[in-house]
């Protein structure tokens, strides 16, 4: 990570932390001297940025609608299955070899899989994600590949080996 991106990343953190403080303190101007100290302490306490990975604000902004849309679809899907008298579920455990590098990209993927329609992360070990699938006839395999590509795009990393083993 070069100097400019490091300064940029620290500035971004300051802005985000200041936003959180503003929200927590209801914008009370007298609280800023405490808030300012809290922000500095938070910056010092936070682990030094994992130099390999960085997210641009623009890419994050583009990622949020994708995330919202799919988590709503996930909620609608599971609600429908729970409420229908026939309860159409046909579960299976699936191992997927990940195409993302270890660290933040894999962790984000693991958390997001649980919010996507019909899948739930159960274990992440040695680049293999074990997930529980609610309906094995569904399009989960394809959805998973798309999610992986979206996260690779978000972190600006390439998807590694082709074809996740499903």
């Amino acid at each position: 990570m070069n100097r400019t991106t490091r300064v940029y990343s620290i500035l971004l953190k300051v802005v985000l932390l200041a936003l959180v403080w503003w929200v927590l303190s209801d914008g009370n101007p007298h609280s800023w001297w405490i808030g300012g100290m809290a922000i500095v302490l938070a910056l010092l306490a936070a682990k030094s940025p994992t130099s390999q990975f960085s997210i641009s604000l623009l890419k994050l902004t583009l990622f949020i609608p994708f995330f919202l849309k799919h988590s709503i679809l996930g909620g609608v899907d599971v609600a429908r299955r729970a409420l229908r008298p026939a309860m159409p579920i046909d579960p299976i455990m699936v191992d997927c070899v990940l195409r993302l590098p270890p660290g933040p990209p894999q962790v984000l993927l693991t958390n997001m899989v649980s919010l996507l329609p019909g899948t739930l992360s159960a274990s992440l070990e040695n680049n293999v994600l074990t997930m529980h699938v609610l309906d094995k006839q569904g399009s989960y395999a394809n959805d998973f590949l798309v999610l992986e590509e979206k996260i690779a795009e978000l972190f600006s990393v390439p998807v590694l080996s082709p074809g996740a083993g499903v």
Partner: peptide, 13 residues
């Protein structure tokens, strides 16, 4: 596992 599906996804939405 199936119950976790219901709790995480439906309740989050």
């Amino acid at each position: 596992y199936t119950r976790l599906h219901a709790l995480t996804k439906a309740d989050n939405v």
